[in-house]
Design a protein around this nucleic acid. Structure first.
Length: 423
RNA sequence: GGAGAAAUGGCAGAGUGGUCGAAUGCACUAGUCUUGAAAACUAGCGAGGGUCACACCUCCGGGGGUUCGAAUCCCUCUUUCUCCGCCA
């Protein structure tokens, strides 16, 4: 959530920045400031009442101790009215604070200055492109047909067991998937990330901390019986490691990587472009998460981008990097780079990674702080990125590496797969 | 799942109705001493709100209640430990 102090300090700047998201935040911001003022005024009144009643209580204590019951009882009566007042005032304060909080939740993160304005994904800015788009063989197939041809992914079987969007990987398909996970984790570890394994179910507080709740409630599977949510990404459990923590400056940079399955309801996103592996309810992903000093978070973001580039380069997949425009930028992100690989047989780009800096937006919700050089607690910056999301990488490998003689596994994966070819 | 015990500052651990945001020890930070370090000594050392800065307010696992007054009493939830049951 946005920092209230930021709005107090720079309402105009925030208003202008939020225009990139095509929202007119002026009324919202004005409302926030008014409620903030009201909240503080109410707090001041309440504090005065509480101070008075604390004082009287102490006097009563002293009187009782010295045996002066009569005078104590007189003082007691004085507190009755104070109590009523404070109760009323406290209710008032809570109501105002809740209202203020609700407004703050509605405000998305302030886009970084480099974020281009724009209304949809068409306005995203391509900043980098690399890799050869392979010439297709004459009878090239999309990955869902290849999956069937080589019997490596069974979508119908998944429907039988769970439903649409839960494919079953078989034989070399399963092996290739496992190889990719191991390869990604190794690359991340080599780059300084510590591998961790985290719960795949999280509680409400965790969902809230990363901003998945309450905004994106409908996108997560919820287990009512135990009030737990299946994670939509490892970002949620990993980032929540730091909920309510105060780090030391020397703890930076915090770098974690985790493989987890990811569960997404994808409510309302059926239709074209969701065939095969393009959009699933359950998929595998390897995630990288960093917690950074505000001074160096954008440097860290660039390091992450270079890291993901490097992986795609090794896999020899054609890809491009986009800087998301204001209209396409996620609610909680300040700056996001999307990575897309070219899926040759589908003749389209597939998003396979999203690398973002959330600045203090998540940290504010998480209460993730660090002690700065002056001994003051301030919010840290959180960042994360996929390195990488599996199904679309798999789809791209199948499609781009198909030959008349089967699917040629990228060289770097061969030691992990222990086979060179499918088919 | 059943029975019992517990939850206090970074850690350990006092505190069972009244100046308690909380003794004490360890850790940590700064200073004195020292060629330097250690030891010793001195001071500081939880979080949030509020203020120009103070004052002041809130927080002793979470929530609610009793009371003039709650870390302390009551209810409830969560978690941990011990015992029993079940079990990969």
């Amino acid at each position: 959530m946005i920092q209230l102090q930021a709005i107090r300090d720079n309402k105009e700047g925030i208003f202008i920045a939020l225009k990139k998201r095509n929202i007119d935040a002026a009324p919202l911001l004005e409302n926030v400031l008014q409620l903030d003022e009201k909240r503080r005024a109410t707090q001041t009144l309440l504090d005065a009442i509480l101070a008075e009643s604390n004082k009287i209580s102490k006097e009563i204590g002293i009187l009782f101790k010295s045996g002066n019951t009569q005078e104590a009882n007189i003082l007691k009566e004085k507190t009755v009215a104070l109590k009523e007042d404070s109760k009323k005032m406290a209710d008032d304060l809570n109501a105002t604070a809740d209202e203020l909080q609700a407004l703050l939740y509605q405000i998305p993160n302030v886009p970084h200055e480099s974020v281009p304005s724009g209304s949809s994904e068409d306005d995203n800015e391509e900043i980098f492109k690399e890799g050869e788009i392979p010439a297709l063989i004459s009878d090239a197939l999309p990955h869902w047909d290849l999956a069937k041809k080589y019997d490596i992914i069974d979508f119908e079987l998944g429907v039988k067991i769970a439903g649409a969007g839960f494919p079953v990987y078989k034989g070399k398909g399963a092996r290739l998937q496992r190889a990719l996970i191991a390869y990604f984790l190794d690359k991340n570890t080599d780059a300084g990330y510590t591998e961790i394994q985290v719960p795949h179910l999280v509680n409400e507080a965790s969902g809230f901390g990363t901003g998945n709740l309450p905004d994106k409630e409908g996108q997560m599977y919820h287990i009512g019986e135990d009030d737990l949510y299946l994670i939509p990404t490892a970002e949620v459990p990993v980032t929540n490691i730091f909920r309510n923590e105060i780090l030391d400056e020397k703890d930076f940079p915090v770098q974690y990587t985790a493989y987890t399955p990811c569960f997404r309801r994808e409510a309302g996103s059926y239709g074209a472009h969701v065939r095969g592996l393009n959009r699933l309810h359950q998929f595998d992903k390897v995630e990288i998460v960093r917690v950074e000093h505000p001074k160096s978070s954008y440097e860290a973001l660039n390091v992450m981008v270079e890291h993901v580039k490097n992986i795609l380069r090794e896999l020899k997949l054609p890809y491009r990097v986009l800087r998301l425009c204001g209209g396409d930028l996620g609610f909680t992100a300040a700056l996001t780079y999307d990575f897309e690989v070219f899926s040759t047989a589908q003749d389209r780009w597939l998003e396979i990674s999203s690398v973002s800096n959330f600045e203090t937006y998540q940290a504010n919700r998480l209460k993730l702080r660090f002690k700065d050089e002056n001994g003051k607690n301030q919010l840290a910056h959180t960042l994360n990125g996929s390195s990488l999301a599996l199904p679309r990488v798999l789809a791209a490998i199948l499609e781009n590496c198909q030959t008349g003689d089967g699917i040629q596994i990228p060289e770097v994966l061969v030691p992990y797969c222990r086979f060179e070819k499918i088919g």
